[in-house]
Design a protein around this nucleic acid. Structure first.
Lengths: 250, 250
DNA sequence: TCCTAACTCCGTATGCCTCACGGTATTTGG
DNA sequence: CCAAATACCGTGAGGCATACGGAGTTAGGA
């Protein structure tokens, strides 16, 4: 990753703020960078990130494979641009109510986004690109708890906490959904295949608590896992914990 | 994924509980499944999961590529076996102290494990394999909070919460480390390259809170991010929230 | 007016990857 | 002692990112 590459990709990220791309010599491009990014998002939405390939993006636009590289330096950079693009989709509604309510909105926005674009959970950025939509969102997230009594450091830690937790919950939920869809096997069918094998393999009586808890969860959820409910449970505990910290301070 | 495949892989998972593999006719295998799994773990430890390939596992053992497939049905199954294998490494120390202390141990065990084997964070299992070490650990994790006053359902939700949060925190930490190592660029150098470009691109004054909070965090951490500290902050909030739930019940 | 630099698009090639298939050598149960 | 079962491996199909160079196109400057 060279210095010039950083420059090139960041310039691409912030292209809206930069206006016209200055007159250049050769033929005009048939598409815009935005169209390439949107095509990429469409491919990733439909097939997930492992199946996301430059060829499929090209096919979708009617270009040949290598032409994509005149729009975007590499696969990783395109994915970075896609990430910042979808972060701009939901908009940033004005904050209302108390910090608790606001943090719930912050978390819910991420939760929804991960479900709208599940491939976001598969992105591995070694060093995150700093794009306009991501920056705007971080500012908005911090504004949600501005003045609530957190120190500056705690504000960052709190947003990190909410974000990390939401990430992990959504990941579990999406993984479960994906498993059911793409294998064409429901949770119940999966257990029907696995249970007899496990009955044979597991030492009897080795898992008393797991058995009891698993049964309780299964009955309550009507499924192996109810991620939506686990998400609310966790979020409520976290908000309680934050409230306790703030109240112990006065 | 056929029925027989499930059987075959689960039989591999629980091979220790199954004893001798019954006499068979052809030539003996030069290695054991355990050796293949350990070779796989070594490759993944050294190079990460994206660079993990069947060829490298074979090379490490002095086998040719296709021979690996006589030990293990596919790449995905091998990774599943590797995951269960590393879950057996740390052992399950007897529980001591109160539930709070115990949950801290549970979280810390996962945190350490993710740092010992960072590729665990890159594993994508559509449907998790149920292996002996994973099952033992889940039982042990539940035992940590048995009798603390949680309902059965809450016990599952609590372990899920701790696990999800730890996963996400470790992921952020490991990603940051990896970025620094593999690019050979420190956080400071990265900012030195990015800052001037961003200064040029970002609308001035657009990010007042981010700027203030970022500066505070940077000074306090002496880095862009101190994940270890964010982890402790989040864990403390979560434990506080759980305590509040339990105490409000009496 | 017209030349040429710069640019787009793309064909080809390299070097990875997983895994199906079939061949050959080896071992052991009958 | 033979035949079935198995290990190991060569080959090849089909996928991937991307480096490189060539052909055609456009606009700025002489």
């Amino acid at each position: 990753m060279e210095n010039g590459d950083v420059d090139r990709t960041l310039t691409l990220m912030w292209r809206r703020a930069l206006g016209v791309p200055k007159g250049s010599r050769g033929p005009k491009q048939r598409f815009s960078v935005d169209e390439v990014i949107r095509a990429g998002i469409a491919v990733a939405d439909e097939e997930g990130l492992p199946a996301f390939s430059m060829r499929k993006v090209a096919d979708r636009l009617g270009l040949k494979l290598m032409s994509i590289y005149t729009y975007v330096p590499s696969r990783d950079e395109l994915i970075g641009l896609m990430v910042d693009e979808v972060m701009g989709e939901p908009g940033l509604p004005p904050h209302e109510g108390g910090w608790r309510e606001r943090l719930t909105v912050v978390a819910r926005q991420m939760w929804d986004e991960f479900h709208r674009h599940p491939w976001l959970l598969q992105v591995e950025q070694s060093r995150p690109w700093i794009g306009p939509n991501g920056s705007d969102r971080y500012e908005w997230q911090l504004a949600a708890i501005e003045g609530a009594g957190f120190t500056d450091l705690e504000m960052d830690q709190t947003i990190t906490l909410i974000g990390d937790f939401t990430w992990a919950s959504a990941r579990a939920d999406v993984a479960a959904q994906r498993a059911a869809e793409q294998s064409g096997i429901s949770d119940a069918e999966w257990w029907a295949v696995n249970a007899p094998v496990l009955d044979r393999l597991m030492p009897p009586g080795a898992y008393p608590i797991s058995g009891r808890v698993g049964t309780a969860a299964g009955e309550e959820y009507n499924a192996v896992r109810d991620s939506e409910r686990s998400f609310r449970f966790g979020l409520d505990r976290i908000l309680d914990g934050l409230a306790l910290m703030l109240s112990s301070r006065n």
